[in-house]
């Protein structure tokens, strides 16, 4: 090689470059966590970027004076239920896409593609009027129904990709033994795709937990709000109370991080099959 630097030295130079890039890029998140341990006065009057005199005052405030736990609970229920519904429905559809061919299947996967690109605002306007006449505004079901559909495209494509990896011979054997086609799916294929379904479920949960727009339209009552909408209330009410806002944001992000670590090895797979495959 013409380069004077040894390959090993070059590797470590790239390593340190990536360390710097990673810190700079994640600075907003790092600062948010550090700031949550500072009171708002400390934040406004501080002289250095590093925190000093750490305090839990913001967290105490969050716990005692706000609806934070209601928001968190609402987020968990909405995300949990929509995860189950979308994973179940997507598993059925994904199996159909994996094992059958025909006009129905082709048409359906086109429709899925369109759903993924659909400007959701267009659906929200008529649905808002429909849901109001049904009394579903401020009900978790309004949001759950929307999330289930919004998750369908990526969940179905992921499910299909998992089912594709399960050999058909297993089902054929079950069919010979007198099992019905659907029976073979439930008894043979589903039990084998546990890890795949779990990954789909975590993805759906993350998306629902993070979602703001739909929840913002349908959940207008403080008792019904999920966390992202609830935090915007903090933003309006205590616009300069940065300490509490940072604490709320930090607690919000904890479940996201935990779930993300659970699926990080699937994430390329999910992004590529969910986003790019048609």
């Amino acid at each position: 090689m013409a380069h004077s630097a040894s390959p090993n030295r070059k590797r470590w130079m790239m390593f340190w470059l990536l360390v710097v890039i990673t810190i700079v890029i994640n600075l907003p998140i790092i600062l948010m966590v550090m700031n949550s341990f500072q009171t708002t006065e400390q934040l406004v009057n501080r002289t250095s970027i590093l925190p000093h005199d750490l305090t839990l005052a913001n967290y105490r405030y969050l716990n005692e004076r706000t609806n934070f736990w209601t928001f968190l609970w609402n987020s968990f229920t909405v995300s949990g239920v929509s995860t189950i519904t979308s994973a179940a429905i997507a598993a059925l559809a994904g199996y159909a896409l994996s094992r059958f061919r025909g006009r129905l299947i082709t048409g359906y996967s086109r429709a899925l593609f369109v759903v993924q690109m659909f400007p959701i605002i267009l659906a929200l306007i008529p649905l808002f009027m429909l849901f109001r006449s049904l009394g579903l505004i401020n009900s978790p079901w309004s949001v759950i129904i929307l999330y289930t559909v919004v998750h369908l495209p990526f969940a179905t494509w992921m499910a299909r990709a998992f089912f594709d990896t399960i050999p058909r011979e297993l089902e054929d054997a079950a069919l010979v033994d007198g099992c019905s086609r659907f029976g073979a799916f439930v008894r043979i294929v589903l039990p084998l795709s546990g890890p795949g379904l779990a990954a789909i479920g975590i993805f759906s949960f993350l998306f629902s937990y993070n979602e703001f727009f739909v929840a913002n339209v349908f959940l207008r009552d403080q008792d019904a709000m999920t966390l992202p909408v609830g935090i915007t209330m903090f933003m309006q009410q205590y616009s300069t109370d940065w300490g509490s806002l940072m604490a709320a944001a930090t607690v919000t992000v904890i479940p996201t991080f935990i779930l993300f670590l659970g699926i990080q090895k699937w994430i390329t797979y999910g992004a590529v099959s969910g986003g790019v495959k048609g």
């Binding site: 700031n35 993070n210 996201t256």
Partner: peptide, 21 residues
């Protein structure tokens, strides 16, 4: 994994922190 964080953090969380900055 670390470079994916901006993508998976809820929008509200990242905006709160950017707004503060």
């Amino acid at each position: 994994v670390a470079l994916l964080l901006p993508w998976i953090v809820p929008s509200i969380v990242s905006i709160v922190s950017w707004r503060w900055m």
